[in-house]
Design a protein around this nucleic acid. Structure first.
Lengths: 339, 339
DNA sequence: GGTAGCACTCGCCATTCGTGAGTGCCAATT
DNA sequence: AATTGGCACTCACGAATGGCGAGTGCTACC
């Protein structure tokens, strides 16, 4: 009883099941793959695989279906990457190069990935805390309001309106703007906090409340976990293979709208920043996503991933293809942001 | 054969059908509504209504279901608004007041509306062309790139990166910034174009290419139809009443992802800017939306609607409630943006 | 015009039953 | 010891059947 052949059988089951969406039986298997043995032998192997928890039967007299554990083994040891075709690559590049600002880049990336994988795509905006300050602008709006605009080196723009206690003179605002920029531009944002705290001392006592409230709101903006923004596309693809999910796709849609859930997953998966990470079925630890898998990877400069991009589909997805698409889009996205 | 009663019957049919999601028969109708006549009489009325195309039977021995035309009559002449409860109103206000910037306001509004109506909500970002310039900022990025940031009075921020032919001096950039702001701040954006065109003349000849490319990109940004952004929320609600749609909800999701479709509809409905507009079923002129209705209204200052907000649900929706929610959220949204 | 009665229609649901794909096991084979 | 052919068994699925009941349209009557 060859161990190798057993793995081969598992791979064949996964591939066939992904393609046909039908439980696969021993006869079909020998017909479609050159395994060189009879159905009966396959059945023995299948029994062993089922014993090990890699496959299961939906009901007694049906073929076998991979379990989450089976997919996991497939992804870890059996799959070989499918590189994209060069026209595809060119199309990706061309499409992303047309983008006109960060919102546009993100939007295009997520749509592109949804299109390529025929699944739901998700892109996380570049994390503020991993970006550097490009420019900080103060705009006076009415008498007692100040608009604080933060622009990062990735092109992300955050703004906050500040209600002031007093009416500042133009001079003070201008000086504050100048000093802030002198201090902050080019700094990674987390390193900024101590620097900002030194700032009030440089100003006249009566300007200090203003300075303090501005530095406070900047710090607040950068600290906010909640300012992690994510964008989805391709939810319509969920409904495509009509019976792709055993129950309705309501729970799935709900989970996808819960940004908290997605953010948790993306953060958890950030451990393997460089490579493509995969969460299969129940590994997502979320009820509504029990029948979906996540394929994500980081983007941004090497070693300092800014954020993540990924694709979400049924556990019964084409993992090699999805992984290739995710990686490709992440790569071009990184390039566009760097360029 | 009283005309009044016939309308009353139609209203009763719509209300019951919305509530029960079952075709409604003559017996049920007299039991649940104090119509003061017998089922047989109702049947005659129903026959007339069917003749007029206001109701239909799914199959021979079933009750009646309102047609699009029936809903239309209901909305136009039979519905009475359901005002929201004051706790609801307070909750809306409190939730929107917490918003920290425009993105946040829009995001909160759309979620709120989705929650209130238990349907899909859509919010259009304030139209650039109907906003006024609050501030225009130029940030030099590297040697040959200039970041142009436009901030409108609604808090919307647009940015574009400009590749320069030459390396401008700081002085020129500063002067350009100053003049641009002097010229533009407070102006409605469409009126800006002629003003901008006069600008290059004020500069030395060698600075003119720079000035021209900046004004060009500003004009481009304001002109762009494509910069109409919309945000959705509550797509999960589509899947809630499991059999809410006769076919799968795939086509609906697809239509919702086609921003072009939604934009067309929103623009068409903008004719009645002030009041709440309704498009029912086939009136949407879109295949995938044949079983959905749109309820939208404008928001922003009176008479000068900035953009639209709305709710999308099955034609068999609770129109009075939806209309009330849409109007309420629009009203508070307007207030937050103005304040 | 409104009402009661009645025959008729037809979707829905539960039941039944045949079919076939697929399995597990065992004895025979290499 | 691994592989194979054979065989009995299981069980989901689809088609066919029939009773039930909600609902209608029609007609005669008030």
């Amino acid at each position: 009883m060859s161990e190798d052949r057993r793995l081969e059988v598992l791979r064949a089951i996964v591939e066939d099941y992904v393609q046909t969406r039908e439980p696969v039986g021993s006869r079909m298997l020998v017909e479609r793959h050159a395994l060189g043995v009879s159905p009966a032998t396959i059945r023995n192997d299948m029994a062993a695989l089922e014993e090990g928890g890699f496959i299961a039967q939906p009901h007694t007299s049906a073929g076998r279906v991979p379990t989450d554990k089976g997919y996991r083994l497939f992804v870890d040891r059996l799959s070989t990457v499918k590189p994209l075709s060069s026209p595809e690559k060119r199309a990706i590049q061309a499409f992303l190069d047309e983008a006109v600002d960060l919102d546009d880049v993100v939007d295009r990336s997520v749509r592109l990935l949804a299109q390529l994988t025929q699944q739901v795509a998700v892109v996380q905006y570049p994390s503020l805390r991993r970006s550097a300050m490009r420019h900080l602008e103060l705009v006076q709006v009415g008498e007692r309001r100040l608009l604080v605009v933060i622009i990062t080196d990735t092109g992300r723009v955050e703004q906050r309106t500040l209600e002031l206690a007093g009416v500042p003179t133009d001079d003070v605002v201008a000086e504050l703007r100048a000093r802030l920029n002198a201090l902050a531009v080019g700094q990674r944002l987390p390193q900024l906090v101590p620097l900002l705290d030194t700032l009030p001392q440089a100003f006249a006592p009566d300007a200090q409340p203003l300075v303090r409230s501005v530095t406070e709101i900047v710090e607040e903006t950068l600290a906010e976990e909640s300012e992690e923004r994510i964008v989805l596309a391709g939810t319509a693809n969920l409904a495509r293979g009509s019976s792709d999910f055993s129950h309705s796709l309501g729970p799935v849609l709900e989970a996808l709208e819960e940004q908290v859930v997605l953010l948790r997953l993306l953060t958890e998966m950030a451990e393997d920043a460089a490579s493509v990470a995969v969460r299969i079925g129940h590994e997502t630890q979320h009820e509504g996503l029990a029948e979906t898998s996540f394929v994500t990877t980081g983007y941004g400069a090497e070693g300092n991933a800014l954020a993540r991009i990924g694709s979400i589909g049924p556990t019964r997805m084409d993992y090699p293809a999805t992984m290739a698409s995710v990686r490709a889009v992440a790569r071009y996205l990184s390039r566009v942001l760097a360029g």
